[in-house]
Design a protein around this nucleic acid. Structure first.
Lengths: 351, 351
DNA sequence: GTGAAAGCGCTAACAC
DNA sequence: GTGTTAGCGCTTTCAC
């Protein structure tokens, strides 16, 4: 563990270049109106001295930090068995990096953490926040609002009651569910069941809605509640099989659920997809590709969601990345509170 | 996206409490030598005004940031199919939070990112770095050393040549591998094969070493190279089966590899564990619990590794969490360059 | 014990 | 165009 050496200041650069601090500042910040000859001298001095601006000093006066907080509750990062969250993080990181912003990660565990996070956000350490809040009773959204920070949510918040100005990015859970169920119907399946996720999460609720959109006539006996885990999938599958031995297809709310369902189907001697076709949701690779047979599922652009969240936030921060919308055509509806990313059906072997 | 309100300063608190800024500063920073009566008045003022110190101003003078960078290369977060990294992050976050430090996440993608990260680290924005560097050709370690920042590595670095002062935290890959192989031997297996990981990673190399520790007599035909993916596991398993049709056990370098091996074994009509016993490594839940049959594997305390990394770094930072070692007995050998966390064998159904 | 004052490194008016 | 100057909010000697 080495000691960090004293770093050159603006002052030092100015002296070396034979100009004033103000001029160096202008050059460093890419301002116009500095004669090219001078600018060049400054740049050389910067180079020679290995000058790097002191962000603390800069923040002190600009009140900007070039930093964004990513807030997520422990459950979020666990329920999805993590790859999900890590991928969003990757997307967020890429976008922030591209615009020279830092990512401050705030993971919360329980009540005591909420106070801490609230304090931090209100403390003016970051310019904005990206918040993952999926549960009904989550106190995070309130906290963030209290802090008065520009914020973009990951996933449709519960209180997206239309009148609000919440900005969020979600994937098209409802549409994805519809396409899954339509696919099953297109295969000629007529007794299509659905294993839901925990319905206090909007993603699960929206997937159920999508299922109902297509199977409005489906009786309640064709729906069983799961919890996004494979154990829950097993339980629900047994329940369904007991109630409706003649079912010929299952749309599971996520891949883990589908994995559990597949196990029970095999155990009960049902052939997949011959007797019962199965479709999952998420396309969580380590799961979807490893099931037996490999899972047909609905893929979301998770990294894209993260990237879009960051972009939306940055845009809200004074100016931000204005019109470089080239690779975000779907984000066009920028005036809308929420942006919904499309999903695609990935056909493997279960349906 | 709301605007952030102007926040109260030290000055304001001082005025309200009828004391000088210096006194408020002392109280806020928990310094001694302030009469209790005054201190109390200050605390009340802080409370009433909702004062939060401006970290930028503070950093400017103290040169401390209460922030630590976590640096990871994209491959790291992908190879392990992510849950691994997310868990370490959780451990790191907990520990940093407990000591009031922020976590700045730096994910790198390619060469251009390295320059950026190097600049950032050298830029004096953080007090230290936690670096994940597993590959032979990884430029990250060099970068960090160049930045002259206190650093702790995740996983044994390649250049841990004994003479060095690198601090790292790793799990006991070699010992874990030994216990896996011994377990198989204890089951009466005599033809034990090993599917390795990518040997340019120390974890994979160490697991191979552990295998050899126990099966020093094993012929080369009982070892096949994998790459930590299930596809690689499949290929290697086929290879092994072709070469040694009589093998009766397999130690796979990680769970994904084991999952692939299991598929091939089933496809070739081998019963698990009756004909061939299988042990994995990692205990990556979404994989290990979902295989058929559920996988016997070696568990590492991933979150604990993260926590320990953070603790070690913090300790290196002026004083740090000195003697609160209560829940880290294994970290006792603090003078040693590396700390190795124990692993445990988790018995499920494959061995 | 407490306060006054200097200054951390930078940006942004404002003069020139 | 470029330099001068005044802080941003805080910690920290140094007197008292």
């Amino acid at each position: 563990m080495t000691e960090t050496a004293p770093r050159p200041t603006l002052e030092a650069v100015a002296e070396r270049a034979g100009v004033s601090r103000a001029t160096v500042s202008r050059v460093v910040n890419g301002a116009h109106g500095v004669r090219e000859a001078l600018a060049e001298r400054v740049r050389r001095a910067v180079e020679e001295l290995g000058y790097v601006p002191n962000q603390a000093a800069r923040s002190l006066v600009t009140r900007r930090h070039q930093a964004v907080a990513v807030v997520a509750a422990e459950p979020e990062t666990r329920v999805f068995a993590d790859p999900y969250f890590a991928q969003q993080l990757r997307g967020i990181s890429k976008e922030l990096t591209a615009h020279d912003n830092q990512l401050v990660l705030l993971l919360t565990e329980g009540r005591e953490d909420h106070a801490r996070v609230g304090r931090y956000l209100a403390g003016g350490h970051v310019d904005g926040a990206l918040v993952f809040s999926l549960h009904l009773d989550d106190p995070l959204p309130g906290l963030v609002r209290g802090a008065g920070l520009p914020t973009v949510f990951g996933g449709r918040p519960h209180w997206d009651d239309g009148r609000d100005d919440v900005v969020y990015v979600d994937s098209d859970n409802r549409g994805g569910a519809r396409s899954a169920v339509r696919h099953l119907a297109g295969l000629g399946r007529t007794r299509i069941a659905h294993i839901t996720g925990p319905l206090d999460q909007t993603s699960a609720a929206d997937r159920l809605t999508g299922f109902r959109d297509v199977r409005s006539g489906a009786g309640a006996e064709l729906t069983a509640r799961g919890d996004f885990t494979s154990g829950g999938g097993e339980r629900a599958m047994r329940e369904l099989l007991d109630r409706c031995p003649d079912l010929d297809a299952v749309f599971a709310a996520n891949d883990l659920t589908a994995a559990g369902a597949l196990r029970v189907l095999r155990e009960r001697g049902r052939r997949v997809p011959d007797d019962v076709a199965v479709v999952g949701f998420d396309d969580m690779l380590p799961v979807a590709e490893e099931t037996d047979p490999p899972l047909t599922t609905v893929r979301q652009d998770i990294e894209g969601m993260g990237r879009l969240m960051a972009r939306l936030l940055l845009r809200g921060l004074d100016g931000g990345p204005a019109a470089d919308d080239t690779d975000a055509p779907r984000a066009a509806a920028t005036t809308a509170p929420g942006v919904v990313l499309p999903t695609t059906l990935v056909r493997r072997a279960t349906a």
